[in-house]
Simulated scan of single mutants.
Amino acid sequence: MAEERKTVGAVLNEQKEQKSAKKNGAAPQKGKNASVESPKADKETEQEPLKLTRGQIFTLTTLLIYKYRFARILVNRDIDKEEVKKKIESIRAAKGVITPFLVLSAKECIEAGLDVVDYNGNVITKDTPDLEHILVILDGQHRWEAIKELKKAGEDYEAYFILPLTDQYDLMTILKEANTSVNPWDGIDWLTMAIQTAKVRGLDTSKLEWLKSLANTENISDSAASLFVTGGKKIYSKATIKSAIDSKDPDKLETLVDEDGLDRNKNLYDAAIAKLNIKTVGLKITPKMLFSFVEQLINKNKPINDAYAHVIEFLNSLSKEQIESLDNAKKTTSRSKDQVITGLFKSYWKAFTERETLS
C-alpha cells in the first residue's frame, strides 16, 4: 500500500480538529503510520504554527519555512571526517537520504541537564531566543554533515526528520540506543557519554575530559592515556566506561571520575612530554615504567608528592643520548620493543638513583 502523504495544511487542520475535539471531550484520532508532509503549504495555513507530532515525518524544507534551526548535544559522538565521506557516497548512490534524522526539542534536552550547542559552537540555554524552534539531532550527525557538504558542492538532497516514536523513554537511554544500534560507538564516544552523564549527575569531569584529550592526541595510545590519567593503575576500556554508565550503582561512575592525584599525574605527563618524543610518551610502556618508579619510592616510605617530584627530576636528568636511545628503540631477535625500552628505563633509573645515593 502506498504511504499516506499529508500537506502541511492538512496536518495543521488535523491538529486544530484534535484540539477542538479535546475541548469537547472527544478523543483525538491517532494515525496508523508515520506520514510525510509536503513543503507546499497553502496560503491560508502557511502562517499557522507548525506543531511537531510523533509519527509525522517532516522535511527540512518545511522546517526551514517555519524557521526551525538545528543543534547538537555535546554527549553525541564527535564528527569523523572519513565517516562523513562515506555518508556522502551513500547519499549519492541512493539518490537521497534513506532514513530520517531523529530529533528532539532543545528545551527537553536542556531540561534533562544536557549541554546543547548549535552548529556554530554557540551554547543553547533556556534563555536562548526562539528556543521552541531549535531541534537537537540525536541520531544522524554524520548524515547532517554530509547533506551540508553536498549542498556546498551544489547538490541538493531533501532531508527528513522524525521525533522518537515513543514518549516512554529516558533521554540518555534513547540517545545511547539510537547511536549504538546502527553504527556502534567506539571508546571515545562512550567516554563522551560518560562525561555528559557525570555532568548531569553533578560530578566533576576534569579527569575524563583530560583522558579524552589525551586519547584524541596523535601518537598517544588509549592505553597510555588511561595510565597517565589513573597514575598507572588502570586502563579504561570501552567495556569499563560503558559499565559505569549503565550501572544502577552510582559508585561505579563516581569511581570512574575520581580525580584524586590528577594534578600530580598531569605534572608527570607534562615532564615526560617536555623531555621525550611524543611517540615514546604515547607508548603504553612509558607511563607504566614511570609510575612503577613512583611506586618504588612510595614503598620506601617516601611521601607521594616527593616521589612524583623525584621521578620528574629523573626525567629532566636524561641526557640527549639516553633520550635518543629510547626514541630509537626497536625490537630485536630476542626481545620486543617494549622489553628493550623497559631495559633502558631500568638502566637509566638505576644509574640516577645510585648518583643520588652517592651525593
Rank of each mutant, 00 (worst) to 15 (best):
S319F: 00
K288Y: 06
S20D: 08
G113Y: 06
K350R: 11
I134P: 12
V117D: 11
R264A: 15
V123T: 12
L104D: 14
A225Y: 06
K40P: 01
A309K: 13
Q15S: 12
E354W: 05
D249H: 05
I304V: 15
I220D: 01
E111P: 08
W185N: 10
K252A: 07
M193S: 10
N299M: 03
L52H: 06
I134H: 12
L64M: 05
P39L: 11
Y157W: 13
E356H: 00
N24S: 09
E46Q: 15
L276N: 03
L12A: 11
N122A: 10
A274G: 14
P164L: 09
G261I: 00
Y160S: 08
G96I: 15
K300L: 07
G202I: 11
G232R: 00
G140D: 08
E177C: 04
T180H: 10
L253W: 00
T332R: 14
I304W: 02
I57F: 12
R264C: 02
A27D: 13
L135V: 12
Y66F: 07
I188F: 03
A178D: 07
S336E: 08
K51Y: 06
E108F: 08
K23P: 00
D127R: 14
T353R: 07
I98F: 09
N299I: 01
H142E: 05
K300C: 03
K151W: 07
V8A: 10
E89Y: 10
L253I: 15
S221Y: 07
S292Y: 01
L262F: 07
G140H: 09
K284P: 00
Q296D: 03
S90R: 11
L102F: 11
Q18C: 06
D80V: 13
D251P: 02
R92Y: 09
Y68E: 04
E354P: 00
E17S: 10
S223G: 12
A2Q: 11
V103S: 08
Q339T: 10
E155N: 12
